[in-house]
């Protein structure tokens, strides 16, 4: 019963924040509504027994990534208002219609055909969460079966860091860097 009430609150809060994102004119307000829906989703993760993922959702998504978004919004100027003139004819109507169709389709599939997957195994996750614990089970699976993927994410992150450093530097520093490169090579040769 408590789970039902909490799920209802999460449902209303997450959907309300998502819909409010659509109508918020200011980019900062959009980001704050996104944080609200992410926190609601973290509660939904907790309700389903994904403790590690819920904590990571709060720390990384609602914390780190959204701070990065707000930082860039501040860097580009908060008071710059979004252009609300739509250049394409009927773009909004078509987007709304197709989005509603997508929502109806996913909701229909979710509510009708999910029992085909075998919903009687839902107690297995609760047993896993009791015996070794959720974090331990996630760690054991991540570092055994998904070890290669885990190492690949480190390569991805290093690539992203290098790419961002190349993208975000100023143009005048590029010229000074290319001017100083031959001298360092000469120094190595000498």
């Amino acid at each position: 019963m408590i789970a039902l009430i909490v799920f209802g609150a999460v449902f209303v809060f997450a959907l309300g924040c998502s819909i409010a994102m659509l109508f918020a004119k200011n980019a900062v307000h959009t980001a704050l509504f996104l944080v609200g829906s992410q926190v609601a989703l973290a509660v939904a993760f907790l309700l389903q027994g994904a403790h590690f993922v819920a904590a990571v959702q709060i720390i990384i998504y609602a914390g780190a990534i959204m701070v990065l978004f707000l930082f860039v919004v501040m860097l580009l100027g908060v008071d710059r208002s979004e252009v609300l003139v739509e250049p394409l004819p009927a773009q909004r109507q078509v987007a709304l219609g197709l989005g509603t169709l997508l929502a109806a389709g996913i909701t229909y599939i979710a509510l009708t055909s999910v029992d085909l997957i075998g919903a009687d195994r839902t107690q297995a996750l609760a047993a896993i969460n009791r015996d070794p614990g959720n974090v331990l089970a996630v760690a054991r699976t991540l570092f055994s079966r998904y070890l290669l993927g885990f190492e690949a994410t480190s390569v991805l992150l290093v690539t992203a860091i290098v790419g961002v450093m190349v993208l975000a530097r100023r143009v005048d520093s590029v010229t000074s860097l290319s001017a100083s490169t031959p001298s360092s090579e000469e120094r190595e040769v000498a």
Partner: peptide
């Protein structure tokens, strides 16, 4: 604790995904 049927969670996820699609468009 987990007595809400999984279909409702999937429906919530589908609705949020659709809102994201509409917003991005």
């Amino acid at each position: 604790m987990t007595e809400v049927a999984p279909g409702y969670y999937l429906a919530l996820a589908g609705l949020m995904f659709s809102i994201g699609v509409i917003g991005a468009l």
